[in-house]
Every structure is written in structure tokens, then in C-alpha cells.
């Protein structure tokens, strides 16, 4: 996944990972590699298996098949040493509410065996990075959801992990915080870390990810660089948005009867559908619609992007 001519050794390898809960396959034979500087965005509907995959990648979830390697070492329950190199932030921050922010981070620093001479300096650095310096003396229970999320991010990054897994890191964070988080993730990527971020905010992922994986029903149904995924694998087709001047009953039926039109989502005055991407084909289609007396107010191909790529996969449940 690295863009360099000579790819570096993978920092994390996910090989044929399968996780089952009874008969439900939460993660189905997923494989990919992460190298230094890779930032993979995981997207998909609720229940797609994103969180389970992240938990498997940090050793919290047992595997029914396959293996996860971090820096060449298999992530087994006995592999405690390699946990130094992994940072994981769950979707709900887990913190000791009775402690102050500084006390909590001091505990984390001790757990990761950070030398006592470096602890305070490192805590100060990360508190500043997540805009929590002013809150360091406050008990965590007094903090808002967004601030707790910042504490959780600081907790993950404090030990300086090489592989960073973030499950919904922007949840509950205010707009300014999200901008700052984006910058932070870009900095980490530039430092040569490998990151996986699960998020429903596709516009954010578009900005900082190097790669995207779209998950549904436990499988990765699309994987590649952001440009490749957003651009679409099938250049011959694209999605169009049609807006009418006034409602037309049975618009869906009209569209579905036209050869080559697929994936129609229509109200009476608006429709989104898939059709051939050539301009000539689009012009023919528009002429045909007008010819049938459809009062077309606007007809244009949708701009490529993650949201468009996600919708193109046909996943109906949208978060």
C-alpha cells in the first residue's frame, strides 16, 4: 500500500481473518497490509464488522481463522511485548472517571513502562496536542463526551505506538476539534505510523486517508487508494441525479423501463440512478426523457467521491 518505489516492510498484516459469533460471521476472511505512512479509512453500515476487525487487530478479539501480525510478530494472547507498538481507541472512551486527566495519563504511562523522567513531559505534550492542557487537573467525570474522547485519544497516543487503530475518533468532538483531529492524523501519518480509522464522516476520511476499505456483512467489498475507490472501478458507468420542475407520478417506473438504467432511487420529483458515463449516452438519455414529457429541471452526473463510491456499492443501510 505504500506509494514509494521500494515498499517498506508491512507494520501490520491482516491475513484471512475470520471472526464468528455463533452462526454470525462478523468478519469474513479479511486480508490486507499496512505499511508506514498508510492511513486506512474503514467505512460501512452498522454491524458491518468494522469494530470487530479493529478489536481483532489489537488482540482483543479471538480469531476463528487467520492471523494478525504486527511488526512481524503474531498477535497471540501471550504476545504482550508487541502491545507496546499498538494503540487502540474504542468507540466509547474507557477511563477512570474518579481520576484527574493527568492522573489517568500518568497511570497509562506507568502501564506502558515509560521512564519516570519522561512521563510528565510526554503527558504535557499530548495534552497540548488534544487541547486539554487547561483541563489536566479536572476529574474526568466532569468532562464532556467530546473531551473524554480527547482523553482517550491522548491515552492511545501517549505510548507512541506504531500501529494506531481508532474507532469513531471524531464522535462527540466539536467542529474545531475535528479540524484539529484531522491535522493530528495527518501528522501521525507523516511520522510513518500506520493508522486505521473507522468513521461514518466520509468527508473527513476523504481528506486524510491514503486508503479506503468499504465493509459490509463482515467482508471488505471494496479496497484501494482513496482516488481509486472514489473514482470508481467501472469507468463506463456513473451515477446521475435528475431533478424535475414538478412531481411526476411513476417516475421510478419510467426510469426503470429505459435500457441501461440501474439502481434507481426516486421520489416523484427527484431521482438518482446509474447509467452509462459517456456524454453522448447522457445526452441521448436526456433527450429521451424530455421526449417522454418529463419536466427535467436538472440532469447531471454525480461528482466522484467517497460518498458516491459508498452509494455505488449498493449498501442500503446508511448511517
Amino acid at each position: 500500500m505504500n506509494q514509494d518505489d521500494q515498499p517498506s516492510e508491512p507494520l501490520s498484516v491482516v491475513d484471512r481473518v475470520r471472526v464468528q459469533f455463533g452462526s454470525l460471521v462478523a468478519v469474513r476472511d479479511v486480508s490486507f497490509e499496512l505499511r508506514a505512512g498508510d492511513l486506512l479509512g474503514l467505512i460501512g453500515p452498522n454491524g458491518a464488522g468494522k469494530t470487530t476487525l479493529l478489536r481483532a487487530m489489537c488482540g482483543l478479539q479471538s480469531l476463528d481463522c487467520g492471523c494478525v501480525h504486527v511488526l512481524g510478530e503474531a498477535l497471540l494472547p501471550s504476545a504482550v511485548r508487541v502491545l507496546h507498538r499498538i494503540g487502540f481507541t474504542p468507540d466509547t472512551p474507557t477511563v477512570y472517571e474518579e481520576l484527574t486527566v493527568r492522573e489517568f495519563l500518568r497511570f497509562i504511562a506507568k502501564a506502558y513502562h515509560i521512564g519516570s523522567d519522561a512521563i510528565e513531559e510526554r503527558i504535557d505534550f499530548w495534552l497540548e496536542q488534544v487541547w486539554l492542557t487547561e483541563k489536566m487537573g479536572q476529574k474526568i467525570k466532569a468532562l464532556s463526551r467530546g473531551m473524554r474522547q480527547r482523553v482517550a485519544i491522548a491515552r492511545t497516543l501517549l505510548p507512541n505506538p506504531t500501529v494506531i487503530l481508532l474507532d469513531e475518533p471524531a464522535a462527540g468532538i466539536d467542529p474545531a476539534g475535528r479540524v484539529q483531529l484531522r491535522q493530528l492524523l495527518c501528522n501521525l501519518r507523516a511520522q510513518g505510523k500506520a493508522l486505521v480509522v473507522s468513521s461514518h464522516i466520509l468527508a473527513d476520511l476523504n481528506e486524510y486517508c491514503t486508503h479506503i476499505a468499504i465493509m459490509a456483512q463482515g467482508s471488505i467489498i471494496q479496497f484501494g487508494s482513496v482516488a481509486a475507490v472514489a473514482g470508481g472501478a467501472d469507468d463506463a458507468r456513473c451515477r446521475y441525479t435528475l431533478i424535475l420542475a414538478r412531481p411526476v407520478a411513476g417516475l421510478r417506473d419510467v426510469l426503470e423501463k429505459i435500457a441501461g438504467v440501474r439502481g434507481v432511487e426516486a421520489d416523484n420529483d427527484r431521482a438518482v440512478f446509474e447509467y452509462a458515463s459517456r456524454r453522448e449516452d447522457a445526452a441521448d438519455l436526456l433527450a429521451r426523457l424530455v421526449g417522454q414529457g418529463i419536466p427535467v429541471a436538472s440532469f447531471a452526473p454525480n461528482l466522484p467521491g467517497l460518498e458516491e463510491a459508498y452509494m455505488r456499492t449498493g449498501i442500503r443501510q446508511v448511517d
Binding site: G59, L60, L83, H84, P90, V95, H113
Partner: peptide
Amino acid sequence: STRMLESHRVAPVS
């Protein structure tokens, strides 16, 4: 119950 145990489990503590 608070899932704090999972936070400990991802730390390199035997």
C-alpha cells in the same frame, strides 16, 4: 462492566 479491562488488556501488562 465499564470495559476498562479492555483498556488494560491492550497495554503491555502481563
